[in-house]
Computed example of a mutant assay.
Amino acid sequence: MSEKSPVTHDLTQLFEKIKDVRIAMLTTTDEHGSLHSRPMGTIKPGKDDALYFLTDSESAKVYEIKKDSQVNLSYGDPGSNVYASVSGRANAYRDEAQIAELWSEPMRAWFPKGKEDPHITVLKITIDKAEYWDSPSSFLSQAYGYVRAVVTGERSKDDDVNQHAQVQPQ
């Protein structure tokens, strides 16, 4: 029987965990009902506790989101042992002021015309729920978890070497 992970309504810790994970896998549902995933560069969380991306208005993801707005974002950083799964509703729209705010020069690789490119679309993910896992990557932390398990016969708990929580915004 698995233990229930703690639940929080505060997105701050989730955003702190994923802030350095530059790429998320965005999963949508395609026209055949199959899951379709692709990498996306997270720009930043908004003041409204949503996640923002810039994308091309002609991309498959925009068409898929118009048919079914439910999406999932998966974040993973094996180097720091941080993982997160974010479920929510996506909305694709054009807002020139927001595009200018979210724009950075490296995005020119996808949008050579710059932030004035008429195909740039804001992709906003409003979070319904999320979950994250964070295990210290240091050898000593992992060794502690191992020794504890051997000595006690119990696996590590979230409060000793791992952090795991569900996030359900209000």
Rank of each mutant, 00 (worst) to 15 (best):
S2R: 14
E3G: 01
E3S: 08
K4T: 09
S5M: 15
V7S: 07
T8E: 09
T8A: 08
L11Q: 12
Q13D: 14
L14P: 12
L14T: 08
F15S: 08
F15K: 14
F15E: 13
E16T: 11
I18T: 12
R22P: 00
R22C: 07
I23H: 04
A24K: 05
M25V: 13
M25Q: 07
T27I: 02
T27R: 06
T28F: 01
H32P: 04
H32Q: 12
G33H: 09
L35Y: 03
H36P: 02
S37P: 03
R38S: 04
M40D: 05
M40I: 06
G41Y: 10
T42D: 01
T42E: 07
D49T: 07
D49Q: 13
D49W: 05
A50P: 00
A50C: 12
Y52H: 07
Y52I: 04
Y52V: 02
E58R: 12
S59Q: 00
A60S: 05
K61F: 00
V62A: 13
E64C: 02
I65V: 13
K66E: 14
K67Q: 13
S69I: 11
V71H: 07
S74C: 08
Y75I: 02
D77A: 11
D77V: 07
N81K: 14
V82I: 13
A84V: 05
A84T: 11
V86R: 01
S87I: 01
G88S: 01
G88H: 02
N91T: 13
R94D: 03
E96T: 09
E96D: 12
E96Q: 11
I99P: 00
I99T: 01
A100K: 15
A100E: 09
S104M: 14
E105P: 04
P106H: 08
A109T: 11
F111Q: 05
P112V: 04
P112K: 09
D117G: 13
H119F: 15
I120N: 08
V122Y: 00
V122L: 00
I125N: 06
I125D: 03
I127W: 03
K129V: 06
K129L: 01
A130W: 04
E131W: 09
D134R: 02
P136M: 04
S137I: 10
S137Q: 09
S138R: 12
S141A: 09
Q142E: 07
A143D: 02
G145W: 00
Y146K: 11
R148S: 13
R148D: 07
A149S: 15
V150C: 00
V150T: 07
G153Q: 10
E154F: 04
V161M: 05
Q163D: 08
H164L: 15
A165D: 15
A165F: 12
Q166D: 15
Q168W: 09
Q168G: 06
P169G: 10
